[in-house]
Amino acid sequence: GTVGLWSKYPITEDQLVDIRPRDIEEGWSRGLRAVVRTPYGEVAAYVAHLPSVRIGAGGLASARRDESARALGALVRDEKVRTVILMGDLNSTVDDRGLAPLTSQLNVAERGFAFSFPTAFPVARIDQVLARSATVDHIRTLPATGSDHLPVAARVTLDTTGP
């Protein structure tokens, strides 16, 4: 697929998750779930690359992206690990109602613009870091890598007060 996860803490579980729209053939894999054992407890880390919004004769086509967001939202809703961090190319800003299945459950960055797309003249942040039982304190872009997106980095503070 098009996603991966690197961690300085041990990854104790990992699996692909199916967020594929119904009309896309088998073999399309753009979702990953892992459990990371941190000094503050377990974190369920989701990495996703949602389908792109396309421009066509009828305007913007976002049905595939929205369907993937709903599937990912259902996984997050059913997640048993208390703390969740979702990161990836969600192909939209957090203000887009198509991402409501995610933004209604997860915290978004409190500070930082981090416009990540397109690399040549970034005008929007469509690469996101969202969290549950944690705060995304700050998000920023990193130097270009050759991708059509700038990478983003975020500072996330885990909520250590709960069960």
Score class of each variant (00 low, 15 high):
Leu99Trp: 01
Arg77Pro: 00
Ile19Lys: 05
Arg33Ser: 02
Val36Thr: 03
Val94Gly: 07
Arg77Val: 05
Val35His: 03
Glu13Asp: 15
Ala74Tyr: 05
Ala57Tyr: 03
Ser104His: 06
Ser147Val: 10
Glu42Gln: 12
Val152Ile: 15
Thr157Cys: 04
Leu16Trp: 12
Ile139Glu: 05
Ala63Phe: 11
Thr103Lys: 03
Asp14Thr: 15
Leu130Met: 15
Ala114Phe: 01
Asp23His: 14
Leu72Asp: 06
Val47Leu: 09
Gly41Met: 05
Arg125Asn: 04
Pro143Ala: 13
Asp96Phe: 03
Thr135Pro: 00
Leu102Ile: 05
Asp14Leu: 13
Ala144Pro: 08
Leu60Thr: 07
Phe121Trp: 11
Ile85Lys: 07
Val94Pro: 10
Leu75Pro: 03
Ser62Pro: 00
Pro21Ala: 10
Thr119Leu: 06
Pro163Met: 07
Leu72Ala: 09
Phe115Asp: 06
Val152Gly: 03
Leu99Asp: 02
Phe121Val: 10
Leu142Thr: 08
Gly27Val: 12
Gly58Trp: 09
Thr135Ala: 11
Ala144Thr: 09
Asp137Lys: 14
Glu110Tyr: 00
Asp159Met: 09
Leu130Trp: 01
Pro163Glu: 13
Thr38Cys: 09
Leu158Tyr: 06
Arg82Ala: 15
Arg70Met: 09
Ala100Pro: 00
Thr38Val: 09
Ala134Lys: 06
Ser52Ile: 01
Asp14His: 14
Gly112Arg: 07
Leu86Trp: 04
Arg111Pro: 00
Gln105Pro: 02
Thr103Cys: 05
Ala154Gln: 10
Phe121Lys: 08
Asp89Leu: 12
Ser116Ala: 08
Arg20Tyr: 08
Arg37His: 11
Ile19Trp: 04
Ala61Cys: 00
Glu67Gln: 15
Gln15Lys: 15
Thr157Arg: 15
Ala48Asp: 13
Ala48Lys: 12
Ile85Glu: 07
Gly27Cys: 13
Pro118Phe: 00
Arg65Gly: 03
Thr12Asn: 01
Asn91Leu: 09
Val81Met: 07
Tyr9Cys: 11
Arg97Leu: 13
Arg70Ile: 04
Asp148Cys: 09
Ser147Tyr: 10
Ala153Asp: 02
His138Phe: 13
Ala154Cys: 11
Ile11Gly: 07
Val81Tyr: 03
Arg33Leu: 08
Pro51Asn: 07
Gly162Cys: 12
Val17Cys: 14
Ala100Val: 00
Asp127His: 08
Pro51Asp: 08
Ala153His: 01
Phe115Trp: 06
Ala34His: 01
Ser116Leu: 02
Asp127Phe: 06
Gly98Glu: 05
Pro51Gln: 07
Gln105Met: 11
Gln128Ile: 01
Ser7Tyr: 11
Gly59Trp: 10
Pro163Cys: 11
Leu75Ala: 08
Ser68Gly: 13
Pro21Thr: 10
Val43Tyr: 06
Asp18Gln: 12
Arg97Gln: 14
Pro122Ile: 01
Thr38Asn: 08
Leu158Trp: 06
Pro39Asp: 09
Leu32Asn: 00
Leu130His: 01
Arg77Glu: 15
Val156Glu: 02
Arg22Ser: 15
Gly112Met: 07
Ala120Cys: 00
His138Met: 11
Ala61Lys: 12
Gly4Trp: 11
Trp28Cys: 05
Glu13Arg: 14
Leu142Trp: 10
Ala48Gly: 14
Gln128Tyr: 02
Val17Lys: 13
Ala48Met: 13
Thr160Val: 15
Gly162Gln: 14
Thr12Lys: 06
Arg140Ala: 11
Thr93Gln: 10
